[in-house]
Design a protein around this nucleic acid. Structure first.
Lengths: 147, 147
DNA sequence: TATTGTTATACTCTATAACTATA
DNA sequence: TATAGTTATAGAGTATAACAATA
């Protein structure tokens, strides 16, 4: 390799919160994908199932909103979770709306994933002290509220 | 909408640095895409051009490394920047390697984008004080070093 | 007319592997 | 044989628009 010139950072972007978030997120998503892969799971699947478990009976549109995207994104995610037997679409308040519920298998899956996620969180915050990690989480909550 | 049940957060993911980073990043990428769209620019294009300007003569493989992905990702990015007349692929040290340089138009584009990026950064950190924003940037640098 | 869930479609980002030309 | 740049390919995530059923 031997790049004699070295690297002078990213110019305009260097040191900004915006670029720092981008770089940190990439670390997160890669580490998490790798951790979930042996369980045939992905980060969006995990987020969806986790939100449904915390909000049983939630409608697809509200799930999508909680995940920060449009209604149409929910359907394929729910298809995959339902095909795995982890989640059910039941009748909702309306006859046009649905209530989402985790199956016992879905709950068990989340239980099984918990230590894996703690290890993931540990790797991401490995360079920080416990108080710093809490402080970072609090700052992030203020950058993007509603987590 | 009127979701009477309310929302109980994201279960397993609530309050973690990992999920906070994901949510904050989504805010960043959307705001930045929207800010760049009128200039027919995208975040990856901006990152690449910015890095090339800060490291003139850098090779495609090193650019890709600085952006955190594989070699093959550089080519289409460079194609687009070259087609816009913002960047040149010149001969490098080897006859098999290239040196990347911004054109005067590329430098001018970055100048034009600078206030736009400052406004973007301001929106992202709007909920934080100046010292908090600096602290956040420093924590992020420790989560994902090399920015 | 508005809303819910869904489908269709397209586009970007990304990763892997294979190809070429140099070394 | 190893490396640099590129091409080909495929897959995931996302956004928009349009549709059918229901309100």
């Amino acid at each position: 390799m031997n790049n004699d010139e070295g690297q002078n950072g990213s110019g305009l972007l260097s040191g900004t919160v915006s670029y720092g978030l981008k770089r940190a997120y990439r670390r997160v998503i890669r580490d998490l994908e790798e951790a979930l892969r042996p369980h045939d799971f992905t980060p969006p699947l995990l987020a969806a199932l986790s939100i449904v478990e915390a909000n049983p009976g939630i409608a697809p549109a509200h799930l999508a909103e909680a995940m920060g995207h449009g209604r149409s994104r929910a359907a394929p995610l729910l298809d995959r979770l339902e095909a795995k037997g982890l989640l059910e679409r039941r009748d909702g308040a309306d006859r046009r709306s649905l209530g989402l519920h985790p199956t016992p298998e879905g709950v068990a899956m989340l239980q099984r994933l918990r230590p894996l996620l703690q290890a993931h969180e540990g790797r991401i915050t490995a360079g920080l002290g416990a108080a710093e990690a809490r402080g970072l989480a609090a700052l992030l909550e203020r950058v993007a509220p509603g987590g």
